[in-house]
Design a protein around this nucleic acid. Structure first.
Length: 496
RNA sequence: CGGGAUGUAGCCCAGUGGCUAGGGCGCCAGCUUUGGGAGCUGGAUAUCGUGGGUUCGAGUCCCACCAUCCCGACCA
């Protein structure tokens, strides 16, 4: 009967799982850690992907496709890369009934096979830049998985660009992070913080990693996208040289950048409530659902009335579902469509038909509006835009309310409270679920690995990134962790 | 890989060594209903996770294994 969603206040983690399963976004698979993406979940991914793809092309990128199997030896060519990915590789040792001479790795990311290929494509500065992207699946054998947020196999895009100069590659790295930042805010309604990762947190094989970081409703951080400046690391590992404008040989400069199906998880976690899924209208499979409310003696008239409203909305380009199922009650339908996250519900019953009205209900606020039927089309546009705006503002307000400056270790400790595991040992039930202490702490940092590692060990708190727009005056203060002279200002948080 | 939990119909669960393994939800058929998760009648659906063992007899007890989920360490 009534599908139950665990309230966030009881168990945030379970709430998230309940949303994903009950809204029919994804299902578990027979293979550990893998997930089946159901049509309602895939529709969100598709809309997200198409819009992002459009923005990639707008910035001069082209799509291509590389194989999912990579010779094992390729992974070993870049020292940090192999160290970073070895523990989580899936390896094919047999195929066609025979043992393979060289095992094949199922790609965890494609830098190696791509740079091996770029070697054959780049001879001169005239061949550059290469601005390529691919939409693909990758496999990382993680110990701990979570629907959408971290699965063994996931869908993503990975951009791999090749450039003449360091400056140009750095500019590309920054450009793509900015594409992600704007996309996150404009489409996903995710307010994000753009910045640079610490040495400890950067991508295996990168010179610099930039990220956008979002805050979930349990105040934990989620890395929503990354853009890497790879320097000449992969060009050197795969011997990709070109003749530059001066006529001498040089190694190619590289970037890579990606976002994954994790973004679907980020959207769910950021906007949804205890009644079910909430998604930004731009991502919703159906923007509106029209629910005719009829009795057996007026069914035909009410259906015709509601259908007219639905047709008008469709004619205006809206994505509209029409729920004329006659075996479930209106109440059931209301709850069901709320669970599915449809941004606007349009009710059309006999009373509305008589008065020439419809009732429009916002998913984000629950607000009910009685609207003249011939104004429904205009009102729908207005409401959808308002919902898109409201979701971003709400998320931003939540994040800002949970972001605090910290000056020293005492303040850091006070801000984050005890670590979760410790709290459980101490018998403090549910600490770390709904009312987890913390959020984003903004503090000065010396740049040292030691105090960063100590913080992680003590509080499970890591440096999310060093926000680009918060570096003014960061030098010359004291590190909030160890008291040494500071070099950066960083966001500290627990994360997914 | 450590800690915890679970495995009985599509889902949730009951079944306390003993006859033909039950219920709720869902599903199918029909009727009746429909403004916040309706009702009646009938119906279909189970290698009780797998393999061993104990026993006259095992869903139930024992052992092993497997799988999944949750929590940690690793990570997009």
């Amino acid at each position: 009967m009534a599908e139950k969603i665990t309230p966030r206040s009881v168990d945030y983690s379970q709430w998230y799982i309940d949303i994903v399963l009950n809204a029919k976004l994804a299902d578990y698979s027979p293979v550990k850690g893998c997930m089946v993406i159901r049509p309602r979940g895939y529709a969100i991914w598709e809309r997200l992907r198409d819009e992002l793809d459009r923005r990639f092309k707008e910035t001069g990128h082209q799509n291509c496709y590389f194989p999912m199997f990579i010779p094992e030896s390729f992974l070993k060519k870049e020292a940090e890369h192999v160290e970073g990915f070895s523990p989580e590789l899936a390896v094919v040792t047999h195929a066609g009934g025979e043992k393979l001479d060289e095992p094949l790795v199922v790609r965890p990311t494609s830098e190696t096979i791509i740079w091996n290929t770029y070697k054959g494509w780049i001879q001169s500065w005239r061949d550059l830049p290469l601005l390529y992207n691919q939409w693909a699946n990758v496999v990382r054998w993680e110990k701990r998985t979570r629907l959408f947020l971290r699965t063994t196999e996931f869908l993503w895009q990975e951009g791999h660009t090749a450039h003449e100069t360091r400056e140009e590659a750095v500019k590309e790295t920054e450009l793509m992070l900015e594409v992600y930042r704007r996309f996150a805010e404009e489409v996903l309604c995710l307010p994000v913080i753009a910045g640079k990762k610490s040495e400890a947190e950067k991508f295996a094989g990168a010179v610099d990693t930039y990220s956008i970081e979002a805050m979930m409703q349990d105040k934990k951080a989620l890395q929503a996208g990354t853009s890497h400046f790879l320097g000449q690391n992969f060009a050197k590992a795969f011997e990709v040289q070109f003749q530059n404008r001066e006529g001498t040989l040089d190694y190619v400069w590289a970037t890579s950048w990606g976002v994954s199906t994790r973004l679907v998880g980020a959207v769910i976690m950021t906007h949804s409530d205890d009644k079910g899924l909430v998604v930004p209208p731009m991502l919703a499979q159906d923007e509106l659902v029209v629910i005719p409310i009829f009795k057996s003696d007026n069914k035909a008239e009410v259906l015709a009335y509601a259908q007219k409203v639905a047709d008008a909305l469709k004619a205006d380009g809206r994505r509209v579902a029409f729920d004329d199922d006659d075996s479930s009650s209106p109440g059931w339908k209301f709850a069901e469509w709320e669970m599915r996250g449809v941004p606007i519900r349009v009710e059309a019953g006999p009373k509305d038909a008589a008065a020439g009205n419809v009732v429009m209900v916002r998913r984000d606020t629950g607000e009910k509006l009685v609207v003249k039927a011939d104004e429904a089309v205009a009102k729908a546009r207005e409401l959808l835009a308002a919902i898109q705006k409201n979701l971003l503002e709400k998320a931003r307000a939540f994040r800002d309310a949970n972001t605090k400056p910290v000056a020293d270790l005492a303040e850091v400790r006070a801000f984050f409270g005890k670590e979760k595991a410790k709290a459980h040992e101490d018998g403090e039930a549910h600490l770390g679920t709904a009312e987890v202490p913390g959020g984003f702490a903004l503090g000065l940092w010396c740049g040292g690995r030691e105090c960063e590692a100590a913080l992680k060990a003590e509080l499970k708190v890591t440096i999310r990134n060093m926000p680009f727009d918060r570096q003014a005056g960061a030098e010359g203060g004291t590190c909030c962790l160890c008291g040494a002279p500071s070099k950066h200002r960083a966001i500290f948080a627990r994360s997914y």
